[in-house]
């Protein structure tokens, strides 16, 4: 290393030092402590007691743990494909040269800026069994009312529906950026060769967009695993635990049931599950994600 390079490296490290300290103090540190706590029984009010792997063994035997995991998987399986498809469709529509497209982009992005709690409350009105807009529309079609949030069948799909409210948000923005990075001349060349709009989408746009789709997919799965707010605000896990999602159950154990060690164990199980999911996705990626220049990272 030349002295100049060393100096620059030093400056670089100094500049990221605040972040590095913050990361150690507020992310890595707590993670290490939570790993330690996952091996203890801790009611918060008295000192933790070491219990080895008992928390993990208890998780395996806890029916509510499996309920929460099942609900979260169901939520993920519904939410991720629907929201990816929705965001992508919106992005394709908003990528066209039509008048006032930026106004539309802003409008579709707006829900992302609203506080989740406020949107959750608006949705409880829309979904109200007796006065909700959704049931009003159903009644116009001659259909009976659905007890959206009070039925064990419909409560979880209702939360999925709420989640789709933000398809025009950040995910769509990332898609839009990806779409704008696709060179115009590829489309022109394909059009010259007589490719229809649909074929251009399938053979040009989607392959070139696949790294972005992959990025949104990985982040989408992680985010949907962490779903909490709508289940907490709107249904509080009910009715009959049908919307008891993983993080809500973790929260209850940690902060309401005096079982912080158990909650820490749940957090680590979730981390391992998410790592496994992400690893599988990276393996599968090689089959469908196309990188220009043929390089496949990871």
């Amino acid at each position: 290393m030349t002295p100049r390079a060393r100096r620059e490296a030093l400056t670089g490290f100094l500049l990221i030092l605040p972040w590095g300290l913050g990361f150690l103090a507020f992310t890595a540190g707590p993670m290490a402590i939570s790993l330690g706590l996952s091996l203890t029984k801790w009611d918060i009010l008295t000192a933790p007691q070491y219990v080895g792997l008992a928390n993990f063994a208890n998780l395996w035997r806890d029916p509510l743990f499996w309920t929460a995991l099942r609900n979260t998987l169901a939520y993920t399986l519904l939410t991720v494909p629907l929201s990816l498809a929705g965001s992508l469709t919106l992005a394709l529509l908003l990528n066209r040269r039509v008048p006032a497209v930026s106004v539309f982009r802003a409008l579709f992005y707006l829900p992302e800026l609203m506080p989740t709690v406020a949107t959750a409350i608006i949705w409880t009105w829309l979904l109200n069994t007796h006065f909700g807009l959704l049931n009003y529309l159903l009644s116009r079609l001659g259909l009976p009312p659905v007890a959206w949030l009070e039925s064990t069948t419909w409560a979880l799909p209702s939360l999925v529906l709420m989640g789709l409210w933000t398809i025009g948000g950040n995910r769509m923005l990332i898609f839009l950026a990806g779409l704008q990075g696709i060179p115009e001349e590829l489309h022109e060349a394909a059009a010259l060769d007589g490719a229809s709009r649909g074929r251009r989408l399938w053979h040009v746009t989607l392959p070139l967009l696949s790294p972005v789709i992959f990025f949104n997919l990985v982040l989408g799965v992680i985010a949907s695993f962490q779903v909490f707010t709508p289940a907490y605000i709107v249904t509080n896990g009910g009715p009959a635990d049908s919307t008891l999602v993983y993080v809500l159950y973790l929260y209850r154990n940690g902060f309401q049931y005096f079982q912080m060690g158990y909650a820490a164990a749940m957090a680590w199980v979730m981390l391992v599950l998410l790592l496994a999911f992400t690893w599988v996705q990276f393996r599968l990626m090689q089959r469908w994600v196309y990188y220009e220049g043929g390089a496949t990272p990871g």
Partner: peptide, 16 residues
Amino acid sequence: AEMVDTLGSEMDLVWT
């Protein structure tokens, strides 16, 4: 808290 949640989950099924 755990008791109230447990009971509430069963009661939900009664009200439906």
